[in-house]
Amino acid sequence: MNDAIFNDAMSEIMEIRAQYISERSVFIDGARMVRLLKALGAKDTDLEKIKLVSNDLPKDPTLPFRESKNGRFCFDSDASRAYRLEFQPFALSAEEDFVRHDSGKTRVFEEIGDDLQLNSALQALLVFKSLIFRGVRTAHRPKLDYDNPAWICTLFNLRTISTPELQGEPALEGVHSDGVDHTMTTFLGSENMTADSAVTFLHDMREKNATRWNETDPELLLGQCRHRHFLDTLIVVDHERKHSLSPVSAVDERRPATRDMLIFFTRKPVLPGHISHPYDSLEPHERLPMAIGLPAPAEERVLVGAGAPAVGGMAQ
């Protein structure tokens, strides 16, 4: 890795981080993300492969218009690494600003495999997110352990599908938060999707949970964006901004329309009494091990001669 290219990318990422701190959300266009991820170790071949990783997703456990997998990772700041965590069920409650028919239900998703976690583009995305949120002060969520140096990142690989019989909803729950500290959403691709589909709306925390995207209070609307190009990425301080999305619609209504995303939910480990407390292990995954190095934000390191992180599928 060329140190000059890496250091230039780190400086640019710190500019993005400063915008995130100031505005509490930031949208990065895909072309810029491609360039930054390549500087962080993403290979051209893996950038092409990640576009297709959603083609073999299984059915979602609760939503008929979605296919999904997930996996858990730990950002270990003390050891400057991220590693794959063992499988755990998933739960998200109304108390966390998520109101839907499956709120509070324990859901079991199939696990993402090495085709995704050992992809250098995915690993660079993990590095990128760690650089953006590390050290950022946010409003604290109840029953999260902010004294713990570890961060848990639950990664979802999702495909939303609209058919002539069924409308695909990227956020059936309407206005919501994701029960975490930092949410990052990255676009992988779409097929037969209209140009006005899947718009993301950001709302003041006073907006009522479960309100449909088109029924919200315009006075509480803080912004909007749309993922339309490969690797378009949005990062949001999740406990300071709610969000909603419009549906996926088809250009040719006779054929399915699809939208493929990676969603990175990152929060502190939970405390007793939290709905996810039984499902919050920090043990590494024995069957699907993975670990990568994490550089620190600029204020914690000397950029010149620092070198790139160890991205590239190092299993341990």
Rank of each mutant, 00 (worst) to 15 (best):
R206M: 14
A310R: 10
L85D: 07
S25I: 03
S25L: 06
D252A: 12
F75Y: 15
F264Q: 12
D3G: 11
H203K: 08
C225S: 15
A150W: 03
G307Q: 09
V311P: 00
R84Q: 02
D56P: 09
S11W: 06
Q224F: 11
E299I: 14
P218M: 07
E191T: 01
P218V: 10
Q123V: 09
R226C: 10
K43V: 08
T200I: 15
S22L: 10
G273I: 05
I28K: 05
T186I: 15
A198Y: 00
F230D: 00
H227E: 06
P58Q: 03
V302I: 15
L294G: 04
F87T: 14
S93F: 06
E111N: 14
T106W: 04
F264C: 11
E169K: 14
G307H: 10
V53C: 15
R301K: 03
S80G: 09
A291M: 11
A296Q: 03
F201R: 12
D145H: 05
L234R: 07
P61H: 10
Y83D: 10
V180F: 09
D232K: 02
F128K: 03
T211R: 11
R206A: 15
D3P: 12
F75M: 11
E23K: 13
D280T: 05
F230P: 03
I132T: 04
V99L: 15
L47P: 05
L92M: 07
L303I: 05
I263C: 00
P149L: 03
F109G: 03
D181Y: 05
L231E: 04
S249N: 09
L52H: 08
P269W: 03
A79K: 04
K105E: 15
H203W: 11
E67K: 08
V304Q: 12
K268Y: 02
E283I: 13
H140E: 01
S276Y: 12
S246T: 01
S80V: 06
M14Q: 15
P218A: 08
F128A: 05
G313F: 10
D217V: 14
V34K: 06
M314I: 12
R241F: 14
V311A: 06
R241Q: 13
N209E: 11
D44E: 13
R228H: 04
F73W: 01
L245T: 09
A79C: 00
L52T: 10
P61S: 11
F201P: 06
R228P: 02
G179P: 04
